[in-house]
Each structure stands twice: as structure tokens, then as C-alpha cells.
Amino acid sequence: MRTSKWLWFALTALFWWGVWGFLAKVGSDRMNPRALQILFVVGMLPPLLLALAKVRFAVQTDRAGIVYGILNGVLATFGMLAFYAAMARGKASLVAPLTALFPLFTVVGAVLLLKEKLNRVQVLGLAMAVIAVVIFAR
């Protein structure tokens, strides 16, 4: 029972992120990336504040943690702008799967910078990701 409950929540997360991809296309066809990013943040805040309210806004203040977190948000923002630009020019059914390959760069960076090791599933995933990019670029 316990397993099925979290699985249901994970699947709901999957669903909402999928809807987000679709709405990003709808939004990108209507306005420029800057405007969409501003509205995006306005819409995103309430659910995230609810998530933080559940832990009573207990926020740790380790200095390096803060720097990584803020940099994380700023870089993700620039990623969003590029994502909206791609959505405005291409099909959502191609842009969403390609941009969802971002763990490719995380994994490669983790190997190069953090000296992490790839597992076999990731190696196979990496090869498949490269083939997918080649197909989209043809």
C-alpha cells in the first residue's frame, strides 16, 4: 500500500511536468520568453511555498548551500528562456523530449568534475541520448 501511494504521487508529478511542457508551448506561441518566465515564476511560487510550509519554512543557511541554491535558480532561469525560445520555433513533441535529456550533461559533468562513476544503465542511456540528438539534428 505504502509503495503504491508514493508511486501515485510520483506519477502525478510526471503528469504535471508534462502539462507544464505543453503549456510552455502554448505560452511560447503567445509571448516572448522574458514575459513567459515572469509569469512562470508567479505561477510556480504558490505550490512551492506550500511545499515549504509543510516543513514550516525551516530553511538551512549554510553559506555554500545558499550560493549553490541561488546559482541553481539563476541558471535554471536562463535554461527556461532557451527552452521557451526552442518551443516558439519547434514542435513541443520534439523540444520536450530533447530538453529532458539534461541529465546527460549532469552525468557527464559529475564524471568530469565530481569524479562520479557511471553505472551501466547510465552508459546505455548516454548512447541512446546521443543517437536521439543525431536523429533530431539530421
Binding site: 541553481n72 535554461g79 525560445a85 519547434g90 530538453t99 546527460l104 550533461f105 549532469t106 533530431f136
Partner: peptide, 23 residues
């Protein structure tokens, strides 16, 4: 036209993933 910005988005979000690991 869409491929380069899509790859840039993936690259930036990929770097974000590393920052998230560090954070």
C-alpha cells in the same frame, strides 16, 4: 531553429543538476 536553443536549455539544466548535487 529549435535545436540549438533546446540543447542550450538542456546544457544549462544539466549544469543545474550538478549544482543541485553540490548544494
Amino acid at each position: 531553429g529549435w535545436l540549438i536553443p533546446a540543447l542550450v536549455a538542456a546544457l544549462l539544466w544539466g549544469i543545474v543538476g550538478i549544482l543541485q548535487k553540490l548544494g
